[in-house]
Simulated scan of single mutants.
Amino acid sequence: MTITIAIADDQQLVRGGFRALLDAEADMRVVGEAGTGEGIVALVERERPDVVLMDIRMPGLDGIEATTRIVSDPTLSATRIVVVTTFELDDYVVAAIRAGASGFLVKDTEPVELIRAVRVVAGGDALLSPGVTRRLLARVAEGARAPHDQGLLDSLTDREREVLVQVAAGRSNEEIAAELFLSPLTAKTHVSRILTKLGVRDRVQLVVLAYESGLVKPGWH
């Protein structure tokens, strides 16, 4: 299976570097580049890539609004967006995660980590380390304007709520299984059911929901 990728960055040199690196991988293919937000939205609508590497600061439509447009289009639900930013906890990153991005990378990421990140996100996993997850989502929680409908979490069983708390801590399925004395397959099944019940795209959005609903508080581990 080949992972298709689109690259959005206003610097041609950055786009060219990413393209050369990713196209060299046997299981990856860059389907296009764009230097503006409008351009990447049009490219994604046309090519429907698996993963988008999204710069934030671009002329005209910025990466946050471009992310919002892509995520809000139900026909593009299979496309995952990774924000590529200069600073790890840039306020723009928080806004992008809120908009529906599946994770983020800093621009000085090592090449091997960029390649790994594309595979991780294409596979449906979140691209946030546990420590970064807690710091980032604490920022999301602090900026929450209003909690989600509390009734939304009523659809979850007690065990599913326990699993959601673990997801919010940035733990993998294997770590959740060890913490709650489950098999990894059972943990994975619980996460899949929670995603379906709450109608969210991926684990990153589950973490956002856990904080914004009040199920998890900033500073919890």
Results as ranks from 00 to 15, higher is better:
Met1Ser: 14
Thr2Asn: 09
Gln11Leu: 12
Gln11Thr: 10
Leu13Thr: 13
Gly16Ala: 12
Gly16Cys: 08
Arg19Met: 06
Ala20Asn: 10
Ala20Ser: 12
Leu22Ala: 05
Ala24Met: 07
Glu25Asp: 11
Glu25Lys: 08
Glu25His: 08
Met28Phe: 13
Arg29Val: 14
Arg29Met: 14
Glu33Asp: 12
Glu38Arg: 02
Gly39Gln: 07
Val41Lys: 02
Val41Ile: 10
Leu43Cys: 10
Val44Ile: 11
Glu45Ile: 03
Pro49Tyr: 13
Pro49Met: 12
Asp50Tyr: 02
Ile56Met: 09
Ile56His: 01
Ile56Asp: 01
Leu61Cys: 06
Asp62Met: 00
Gly63Phe: 04
Ile64Trp: 00
Ile64Asp: 00
Glu65Lys: 02
Glu65Ala: 11
Glu65Trp: 02
Ala66Ser: 13
Thr67Met: 01
Ile70Leu: 08
Ile70Glu: 07
Val71Thr: 08
Ser72Met: 07
Ser72Pro: 00
Asp73Ala: 14
Pro74Met: 07
Arg80Met: 11
Val82Arg: 03
Val82Ala: 02
Val84Ala: 04
Thr86Arg: 01
Thr86Pro: 02
Phe87Asp: 13
Glu88Tyr: 04
Glu88His: 03
Asp90Tyr: 02
Val93Met: 04
Ala101Glu: 01
Glu110Asn: 13
Pro111Leu: 01
Leu114Tyr: 06
Leu114Trp: 05
Ile115Gly: 06
Arg116Ile: 00
Ala117Pro: 06
Val118Gly: 03
Val121Ala: 06
Val121Phe: 08
Ala122His: 08
Gly124Trp: 12
Gly124Cys: 14
Asp125Glu: 15
Asp125Lys: 00
Ala126Gly: 15
Gly131Cys: 06
Thr133Cys: 10
Thr133Phe: 03
Arg135Ile: 06
Leu137Phe: 14
Leu137Ser: 02
Leu137Ala: 04
Ala138Glu: 03
Arg139Gly: 03
Glu142Thr: 13
Gly143Trp: 08
Pro147Leu: 05
Pro147Lys: 15
Asp149Cys: 11
Gln150Met: 10
Gln150Ser: 12
Gly151Met: 10
Gly151Phe: 11
Asp154Ile: 04
Ser155Gly: 15
Ser155His: 12
Glu160Asn: 09
Arg161Val: 13
Leu164Val: 06
Val165Gly: 02
Gln166Val: 11
Val167Thr: 03
Val167Ala: 04
Ala168Trp: 07
Gly170Val: 05
Gly170Trp: 03
Gly170Met: 04
Asn173Met: 11
Glu174Lys: 15
Ala177Lys: 13
Leu182Val: 09
Ser183Val: 09
Lys188Asp: 03
Leu195Phe: 12
Thr196Glu: 15
Thr196Leu: 07
Lys197Gly: 09
Gly199Phe: 06
Val200Gly: 12
Asp202Met: 00
Asp202Arg: 00
Asp202Leu: 00
Asp202Trp: 01
Val204Ile: 04
Leu206Ser: 08
Leu206Met: 13
Val207Ser: 06
Val208Pro: 07
Val208Glu: 04
Leu209Gln: 13
Ala210Glu: 05
Tyr211Lys: 11
Glu212Thr: 15
Val216His: 09
Lys217Ile: 09
Lys217Phe: 09
Gly219Pro: 00
Gly219Asp: 05
His221Ala: 14
